[in-house]
């Protein structure tokens, strides 16, 4: 690999989108995230905007600084650093201090991506590494002090803090979770439009799905991974009696559409992608139901990232195998 030319390297295998340039794809991804981001900022207010800006700034500046330091060609315009910053911001508490979001983005880009050699060489999804770092470093700020959203410029913000539906589900049971979700605006409004506590980007399923739809329409992603992630979650939470609550809450959809589908860290053949998605879904359900954390999608994707090369190997197309080889 030539160090001065960090091109976007696709793994071998059938791919739908080799004709798209990296930067074009990235800016489409960023654009499709815009509605969810704007809505998150709108319902959570000023600090959410600060978090988004700090996270993007942290990502972009770290990428720029490390490329300068290593004497590489700056690749800021390809939009991938912005994308990492945006995705990280979407997965954090809107009340997180902005400097912590900045630090998380620095970690995501610096130790999640640049240290592996830049875009295309990272093993793990940088934004999720950033989130895992923030969870470990600032557990209090990341997991408490959630705000019940209300539109900006609406009723004055009182400092009502509450837990997320998944946390309530974990600690207080099904009824309390349903109560929390349905009380302010009704179940449908809560889950679809985002009138419930949560991280900046996870509140409105409709807008995340809209963004995912744009990516699908542009053929930037395929349905294989997102659908199998959702199927995996449904399977592993069926026995709890509330698979719908699990399916429609948390950062699941952002994870399924935007993070699990990251080209660099996911397998490239369809069969491997389905296995990858199911693995993520099952792990998410297992962590949510049996694990220590209310939300599991972040760690599930990171674990599956580590499995991606193996999945590609196990599920590689038959014709690629040499007859009689021990595989």
């Amino acid at each position: 690999m030539s160090e001065n030319n960090p091109t976007f390297v696709l793994s071998p295998g059938p791919h739908l989108h080799t004709e798209e340039s990296t930067s074009k794809i990235m800016w489409w991804v960023n654009g499709s995230l815009a509605p969810a981001v704007l809505w998150g900022v709108f319902v959570f207010g000023f600090n959410a905007a600060l978090v988004v800006l700090a996270s993007i700034a942290g990502a972009v500046l770290t990428e720029f600084a490390s490329q300068k330091a290593l004497g590489r060609r700056p690749t800021l315009t390809d939009g991938s650093a912005v994308c990492t910053g945006l995705l990280l911001a979407l997965t954090v508490n809107p009340n997180l201090p902005a400097w912590q979001a900045f630090l998380g983005a620095m970690f995501a880009i610096g130790l999640g991506k640049m240290i592996f050699g830049g875009l295309g060489f990272n093993l793990f999804n940088p934004a999720l590494l950033g989130r895992a770092f923030l969870m470990a470093t600032f557990p209090l700020n990341m997991t408490s002090g959630w705000a019940m959203p209300r539109p900006w410029f609406g009723a004055p913000l009182d400092a009502v803090t509450t837990a997320t539906p998944l946390a309530v589900l974990k600690e207080q049971g099904i009824e309390a979770a349903v109560q929390l979700v349905t009380s302010p605006a009704g179940l449908w409004n809560a889950l679809a439009l985002g009138f419930r506590p949560g991280s900046i980007g996870e509140v409105s399923l409709v807008l995340v799905a809209l963004g995912g739809g744009i990516l699908l329409a542009r053929r930037i992603i395929t349905l294989a991974i997102p659908l199998s992630v959702l199927a995996g979650v449904a399977l592993s939470t069926l026995h709890t009696g509330v698979p719908l609550l699990h399916l429609m809450s948390g950062g699941l959809w952002i994870g399924a559409f935007y993070m699990a589908t990251d080209y660099v860290t996911s397998p490239s053949t369809t069969r491997a992608q389905i296995a990858f998605g199911l693995l993520i879904g099952l792990l998410t359900g297992i962590i949510r139901v049996y694990g220590g954390y209310p939300e599991g999608i972040c760690y599930a994707i990171l674990i599956a990232n580590a499995m991606a090369p193996a999945l590609d190997l196990w599920f590689r197309p038959r014709r690629a195998a040499i007859a009689g080889s021990p595989s």
Binding site: L103, F133, A136, T137, F138, P139
Partner: peptide, 10 residues
Amino acid sequence: PLLFFALPAG
């Protein structure tokens, strides 16, 4: 400051 570094991963 950064609890992360006190943990094994850190």
